[in-house]
């Protein structure tokens, strides 16, 4: 870890004007960066300089900058969200880098995530997967008292573990097959361990998996790179649970 207060870096940032542009790395020198900056604040500084020089700043998605909205993300030196485990790009701090480092910054790459501009990608495929079954169809009103159905702490904790997914897409970017299994299985798992989710269990997993397949995500071949980069520590055991759900559903489904 760096001990200096400020560091100088050479960035190789992916620049791409739009989905059909070929794109290339641009070399940018980032000088006197405080080690207490976050990675995105470092990009802010770089962009500020570019704007002053009338250059087009690097486009990157971000919003909460607290590691919870899932909006930010880039591949930093080959790793989705960069070198610090369980940390989103906005929470990665420059103290994790050394003076003189060269840092490659690229968008999350996957067929299902077309590039919008520079580091910004289109992750709407995730929303379409959720729209196929990532919910319990309880309409507003007409539901029982919240304490009517006790849920064991073990299951409710398991549901919460899976529900922590922020939908950033790092799992897809890290997977050699660009599979969305970790994302999809996190939602399937959350609802599978809750009694409220049981009613729609069969259709849910079948429909979500079928949507996932139609979005050009690849298959899972158990590399577990997804788990390694997940900023929220979503576990691959969710994938195993989804596979069981899928198997069960394939057997009992009436379609």
């Amino acid at each position: 870890m760096s001990s200096e207060k400020t560091i100088n870096l050479t960035l190789k940032v992916w620049r791409q004007k739009g989905p059909t542009d070929a794109g290339k790395f641009q070399t940018i020198h980032a000088k006197d960066i405080s080690v207490d900056c976050s990675f995105l604040e470092m990009l802010d500084i770089v962009n500020d300089e570019m704007a002053r020089g009338d250059q087009d700043p690097v486009a990157f998605d971000h919003d909460c900058r607290e590691g919870i909205c899932g909006m930010c993300g880039a591949v930093v030196n080959g790793i989705a969200h960069g070198p610090q485990s369980e940390t989103t790009l906005c929470q990665l701090h420059m103290r994790k880098f050394n003076n003189g480092d060269t840092i490659y910054v690229e968008p999350f790459r996957a067929k299902a995530f077309p590039i919008v501009k520079d580091l910004v990608v289109d992750r709407s495929a995730f929303d379409r997967i959720i729209a196929k079954g990532g919910f319990i169809s309880a309409k507003t009103g007409g539901v029982p008292d919240a304490n009517a159905i006790p849920i064991s702490k073990v299951n409710s904790d398991l549901a919460m573990d899976a529900a922590g997914c922020i939908g950033c897409g790092a799992c897809v970017a890290a997977c050699p097959n660009a599979s969305a299994m970790l994302f999809t299985s996190a939602k399937v798992s959350q609802l599978a361990v809750l009694p409220q989710g049981a009613v729609e269990r069969t259709e849910r997993v079948l429909n979500m998996v079928s949507q996932m397949d139609s979005e050009q995500f690849g298959n899972c071949s158990n590399h577990y790179e997804c788990e390694a980069v997940c900023p929220k520590a979503i576990k691959v055991e969710n994938i195993a649970r989804m596979n069981r759900e899928y198997l069960r559903a394939s057997v009992v489904s009436r379609d």
């Binding site: 919910f135 319990i136 539901v143 919240a146 304490n147 006790p150 064991s152 409710s156 549901a159 959350q190």
Partner: peptide
């Protein structure tokens, strides 16, 4: 306010529970 909690639980929001299984 109470109906909100009912609604959220019905949607699968994993609120904290104690060992009895209640919220």
């Amino acid at each position: 306010s109470g109906s909100i909690i009912d609604q959220c639980v019905a949607q699968g929001v994993p609120f904290a529970r104690d060992y009895s299984g209640y919220l």
